[in-house]
Nucleic acid binder design. Structure first.
Lengths: 334, 334
DNA sequence: GCAATAAAGTAAAACGTTTTACTAATCCAA
DNA sequence: TTGGATTAGTAAAACGTTTTACTTTATTGC
């Protein structure tokens, strides 16, 4: 069964297509369509269940009311929770979200940008990776609103919303030191994105400020995309160094793997061994003992992202770029 | 900067729009375009970075290469993991996913269906809720491929892929009974969807088959969408009944809340109190002691969903409906 | 009672593709 | 040498909207 078109409505109501279009778009008054006609057409529309074809609409107007969301991996709870919040807020303002996961592949990220481009999304929300700078620059040159979140690309001149990774990391290490820890390990990833680098820098700076020498044997950089079993064996190797008395995990999935290791090698978290995980996760609260975490301000990040996007979408002129850095919260458990 | 259109390419190559279109769509051979022209046009396309406008394409052809995914909540790890798998498999076959969360609201689900309809998605993958039967029927009447997963709506005649909830629940209870448990509680939700009802039925049947009387004081039905604090206090009330020696949580988020309660009231899982959670979650593996779970076959569900969808998309005639029920696995931990 | 203005509405172009039906030139067989 | 088949390509309609520029009739002010 073919779906109804504006033409069918026009014929039924015995008016022109133009008139129907004006009514649908709330321009009836301003285009001086009579009350009687408005009512008649609206009645027919309601009865027939006609819905305008958004594709035709997009083709004509050039915008789609769709926002593209590019993230690393929707099955990571940090991203899925952010996605949910963004979706929610966007939806309330009449925007829909198309998302896709890059799995940290530059090629896939570029492909996604192209796909979104050819689908004429109105705006891009991206948690970027190194290597897509040129593509993003082209988007910006073409006048597309682009907002980065969680991660930033320093060479790109656009708005960014994220947590204060450097300070969060610094404070975590400081709290270890305040507890008297001396041999503090860091488990992080080798992906070269700003937020990960900042966490690393915060680690180093805190050690330095406290007069503790940086020891590269205490830092483990895990390949992204490797099998979890491999990750686990690397972490196991690290943590078997007896002297380590504290460890900061730079992402939640690394912390999960790390906790599995602790369970395996039966190393207890307590007075002489402390753990902090980056990005909260339900497992950390439930764990016995509770795992201290750096909690990212998801709600604020999502709210700011949407606010910036909508501001750009509603004003023709591009607003000033903003770098919104939101403090993260260190939650000490148990 | 305006983006390039097929016309720009045609002008540059000094051929007609038609010719360019044939080449883009791989019909050059069959439409007898000469090798020389093909090469020339392809070169120009590559150099200019031209990408066809998918919106115009969709308008003309009536399909979008987009599959709509409607789920309850993307931030629930069961759905986000399934979404990731589906996205991945769809992507490999040239399809993109638009997803949205219903939050178990019938109105939002209907709105989403309408939105997808007006965007002309090629197919619908839905984890349905009661109340949208009419809307789905209309989709089917219009010839749209629709596949349900995780949950089913009995009155609707379409394909379904899901786990064997009844047996999984039955086996869980049976395993409690085999351990000698007598007062087995069930914490479930009040949403009226088949998969939840089946879990409940499995619970009842297992008790009955073992000659244990059903006691409604041992069954707690939690409102969907209520605050977690409320959920926690209700579960607390239930579990404070001393005689309860085992509990099955019918969803992973209920189990998470339940574990928080156990931690609060300091009730230990062990020989005289057992827990099984439905749907695995990282927290369950890490928990001390490990929490036994019913693991849904995510990979198989996603694979079957995509297989069915693609079969429908490629064959003009609608294939037979299939009900694919995949056994779930009871993982006993510790 | 006449020009200017307002009210009520419409025809047709445009958005960027795909596809159908067509033309013109060349080839080949009888 | 002729006429059907093949090769190489194109013009134009169609998809379903929005929007600009236009028409026709009624109203107003003087």
């Amino acid at each position: 069964m073919k779906s109804l078109s504006i033409k069918d409505i026009a014929v039924k109501a015995n008016v022109s297509i133009t008139t129907v279009s004006f009514i649908i778009n709330g321009k009836a008054k301003e285009k001086s369509i009579s009350e009687a006609v408005i009512e008649k057409v609206e009645k027919i529309i309601a009865e027939s269940g006609y819905k305008p074809n958004q594709i035709a609409r997009s083709l004509r107007t050039g915008n789609s009311n769709i926002i593209g969301l590019i993230i690393e991996d929707i099955s990571n709870s940090f991203f899925s929770r952010i996605a949910r919040l963004i979706e929610d807020k966007a939806y309330k303002r009449g925007y829909k979200i198309i998302y896709s996961s890059t799995e940290n592949s530059v090629d896939k990220a570029k492909e996604l940008i192209n796909m979104f481009k050819s689908r004429k999304v109105d705006a891009y929300i991206i948690s970027p990776i190194k290597g897509i700078e040129e593509d993003v620059k082209m988007l910006l040159e073409d006048g597309n609103p682009v907002i980065f979140f969680d991660r930033n690309l320093p060479d790109i001149n656009t708005s960014y919303v994220g947590a204060d990774h450097f300070n969060a990391s610094y404070q975590s290490i400081q709290s270890f030191i305040d507890q008297g820890k001396k041999n503090i390990a860091l488990v992080t990833t080798d992906i070269n994105v700003e937020q990960i680098v900042e966490r690393y820098d915060g680690y180093k700076k805190a050690l330095e400020d406290n007069g503790i020498k940086y020891d590269e044997n205490l830092v483990l950089k895990i390949h992204f995309n490797q099998e979890e079993s491999e990750t686990i064996s690397q972490i196991k190797q690290l943590l078997e160094q007896k002297k380590i008395d504290a460890v900061l995990f730079a992402t939640n999935y690394l912390a999960i793997s790390g906790l599995k290791v602790l369970k395996q090698i039966n190393k207890k978290i307590g007075d002489d061994f402390a753990v902090i995980a980056y990005d909260d996760h339900e497992a950390f609260e439930l764990h016995t003992p509770g795992i201290s975490t750096v909690q990212q301000p998801l709600e604020e990040i999502a709210e700011n992202v949407i606010k910036l996007i909508l501001k750009q979408l509603s004003s023709k002129a591009k607003p000033e770029n903003q770098q919104i850095i939101i403090p993260a919260k260190l939650i000490i458990r148990d």
